[in-house]
Nucleic acid binder design. Structure first.
Lengths: 235, 235
DNA sequence: GTCCAGCTACTGGTATACTAGTATATGTCA
DNA sequence: TGACATATACTAGTATACCAGTAGCTGGAC
């Protein structure tokens, strides 16, 4: 861990933590956890960023205790690497880890699709979300599509009544999203294809074809691999 | 949270924590985490057991800091329920949670089986483990079988090169194992059936039939549901 | 006897001080 | 000039003290 002189640090932690407002009335730990996590995922904290407990605690005006809890949690998710007595850094982008995250997400969400094919879904509740996706996809508004995509998958998980499974997906999705937000390019047209996947998925579910529903979901989630491989072509 | 007079506490925490030896040369947190976790899983800490940070820290002769980290991790796994300013208790047995744990395990391990069917496995490495399972199953030695069963599944995960997925399985498996160790009865004959599942699984994998391999694994893991439902018959 | 206010003893959450370990910088010697 | 021992400034890990909130106990009003 290099000892950084003040001016050698090209990274302005103070600026990166701007906007972190801790509500002292609520528990601090979860708040700082969310703040750090979102900054890692959207690459405001680039991989390799040193996260000194002391410095972050000072800037956010909190003690190290709740901050440590947050860092430990993030380390558990693989977003931060803690080296005892040395320091903590934001984990580097790791293609293998992202691939495994996609593997896990595909496994769980395919199982959700399979279950829903057996139990049925409330198509009426999904319809407006699908419509919004179609509209966003047709004008290739990826950011809006992305939001409705999240809502769609989240609703499926709720309908399958597997909250802990969904939490695990959320956990691994951090690695996928971090990569996705890095390679925002070359995703033109992706939205419409994803929308079509969703339609095919709901079709398979509503006709009770569990294997087909699982297969569609698996392929749908695995399509994120293509973006990853495309991004890996770069220097 | 009832205020317990010394003699009203039927549970002897001191005795339950006997054997916890902390090696001060290594990091304390993971050590106390393992100690608590194993005691929760094998029901030495029955559901509802109050885990006062202060008391446990005193008995184990450690400070609350590393103990808190362990408790927070266990709370994240759903094995402990922390009520701020009230107390922490070992989570009650929750059939829904166990069912969901089985759901998650089935999803991930089925995906592992599918992948192995596509990439192939080192059957020679698995053969001795399968042989040991057969031997244990034939004399209905469940405990020995259980050990080789764990080794078998662990080896498959290693071969599929998905360490984080396997860690997630380990995490949810705690809930399954806690239940299993509670209802050790009425599992006679289970071993041989599990062994036969394993053989069928390897057959499907080696002929490259991904769907079949996934289906066999899914059914194999889901068979734990039967034990759960059987146990739920009780008073 | 019943009910309710307030006391008390506990809890986990937080802040802070101290410890032990590591990597860099520095000075010294060959 | 180079290697190597030592000093130093940082790190995360741990211990401890304090704080705020909760629940059961206690005693008095009725």
């Amino acid at each position: 861990m290099p000892r950084l002189t003040p001016e050698a640090s090209a990274f302005d932690m103070q600026a990166a933590l701007k906007g972190v407002a801790i509500d002292r009335a609520r528990s601090i730990g979860p708040q700082i956890y969310d703040a750090l996590r979102s900054r890692i995922i959207d690459n405001r904290f680039p991989p390799g960023t040193a996260l000194s407990e002391k410095e972050v605690a000072r800037i956010c005006d909190i003690s190290r205790t709740p901050l440590r809890a947050a860092i430990q949690d993030l380390a558990g998710e693989g977003l931060i690497i803690v080296k005892p007595q040395v320091g903590s850094v934001v984990a580097p982008h790791d293609a293998a880890r992202v691939r495994e995250a996609i593997f896990i997400r595909a496994a769980i969400e395919a199982a959700i699709a399979r279950r829903l094919a057996e139990t049925g879904v409330d198509e009426a509740a999904l319809a407006p979300v699908l419509a919004a996706q179609k509209a966003a996809g047709e004008r290739d508004d990826y950011l809006t599509f992305f939001r409705y995509d999240e809502q769609f998958h989240s609703m499926l998980a709720r309908m399958a009544e597997v909250p802990n499974a969904w939490q695990m997906v959320q956990s691994v999705k951090a690695h996928i999203d971090r990569q996705r937000l890095l390679l925002m390019s070359s995703i033109t047209g992706r939205s419409m294809r994803a929308y079509e996947d969703h339609v095919k998925l709901i079709e398979a579910i509503s006709r009770g074809d569990a294997s087909a529903a699982a297969a569609v979901m698996r392929d749908h989630v695995n399509s994120a691999l293509e973006t990853l491989e495309a991004g890996a072509q770069g220097p």
